[in-house]
Computed example of a mutant assay.
Amino acid sequence: MTELAGLEVGEQGFGGMALAEVYGPTDEASALATLHHALDAGIRLIDTADVYGAGSNERLVGRVLRERRDEVVLATKFGFLRDPAPGGPRFRGDPAYVREAVQGSLGRLGVERIELYYYHRVDPRVPIEETVGALAELVAEGVVERIGLSEVTAAELERAHAVHPITAVQSEWSIWSRDVETAVIPTAARLGVGFVAYSPLGRGFLVSPVTQLPEGDLRRNFPRFDAERLAANAPIGETVRAVAEAEGITPAQLALAWLGEQGRALGVDVVPIPSTRRPERIDENLAASGIRLSAAALAALEPLGARVAGDRARHVGDISQGRERTEAAG
């Protein structure tokens, strides 16, 4: 059983975002079946956010919680504004909003307490100490059990952890998204903070060829998925799939096993939260547990991250990658 700073969550969690309409239309019955299958398969950590589907994803998870609350370690997030004004702020982290957001999530989820409550994106107008101070009050009141941060820099993590212990940092980490290894992960390891890796399969890019994206697909918003960069990045996906074949496992299992190897090498407890709409994919992903990759596989995968064309976000300043560039530039 993998722990995040003492919170038992299992070796993998389930990322709920794909069950909102971010990669195209979905339906509630299939989404509920997928969530139930995840729990049946032994997953404990269910990860959602108030912004996914403008709150609909939390309500969906809430329907499952009404039947199976004791089986779930619940994680949700706040801070992304669902309907920002044109040209206005897209994130909020002021103490008043922290309280407003948590009450909204509790209502949609139908629960009295959230095990792991993440600050989804950093509001540049509010010192992170103020936001974490407000979250610490929720912990003292028993509304929130533990605090998480998403897409923070190493310096922001240090400052936040000085106010209240942080259980987990959640950021993108995969074979083709490795910027967090420079500073965030070493800092998390030193502080005893766990790491929750979202998009561990590269938003599907590492699993199967991605050549054309349908209308409504969230990946259209990411630079590395535009037509020109997709073509430039194609050899990365091809290498991943070739290495997986040589190892006798699927590309998804390779990507998840690689994260496990990296976590051990860098001294951080890592829990990936792959997202899917297909129950059989959950079983495939969980089968990565215990896989150890050969030295040849690790050597073949090592240089791929440096070859990626395109940042992992359109507004790179919103994520740790962009802000750490700014910090490094002085």
Rank of each mutant, 00 (worst) to 15 (best):
I43V: 15
V98L: 06
R229V: 00
E302T: 12
G322T: 08
S199A: 15
A299Y: 08
R63Q: 15
V122A: 14
F195P: 01
A300N: 10
A231V: 11
R108I: 02
A183H: 14
M17N: 12
H161E: 08
N57L: 14
D47G: 11
T182I: 13
V193G: 03
D70H: 13
A295S: 15
G290A: 14
E129C: 12
A299I: 12
L109S: 05
E172I: 06
L32N: 04
G88V: 10
G79P: 02
D311R: 10
G88K: 08
L301W: 05
S177V: 12
L157A: 07
A300H: 08
Y198M: 05
V163Y: 08
A183V: 07
A309M: 09
D50M: 12
M17C: 07
H120D: 03
I185N: 02
S171A: 15
V210P: 09
L39Q: 07
R264E: 14
N233M: 03
R277W: 09
D94A: 10
E58H: 11
F205D: 02
E11I: 04
A255L: 03
E130N: 08
M1A: 08
A160G: 04
V64G: 03
A183Y: 10
T76R: 03
L149M: 02
V169A: 01
E21F: 07
L259M: 10
R59V: 08
V126S: 06
R178Y: 00
A75W: 05
S174M: 09
L191H: 06
V51R: 07
V316L: 14
L213M: 12
T211L: 13
E156P: 02
N233F: 02
P274I: 07
A168Y: 05
G133V: 11
D217I: 05
F205K: 05
S30E: 14
G290Q: 14
A296M: 10
E247M: 01
P303C: 11
M17T: 06
V270W: 00
L298P: 09
H164P: 07
G305F: 01
E141M: 02
E8K: 15
A257W: 04
V144F: 07
G330I: 06
F205P: 00
D40K: 13
A75F: 04
I166V: 15
E247S: 00
V268T: 01
R219A: 06
E215F: 11
A18P: 09
F225N: 01
T26W: 04
H161Q: 11
G53Q: 11
L301P: 03
A49V: 10
R146W: 00
Y117M: 01
E21Y: 05
V111I: 07
L157F: 03
G10M: 01
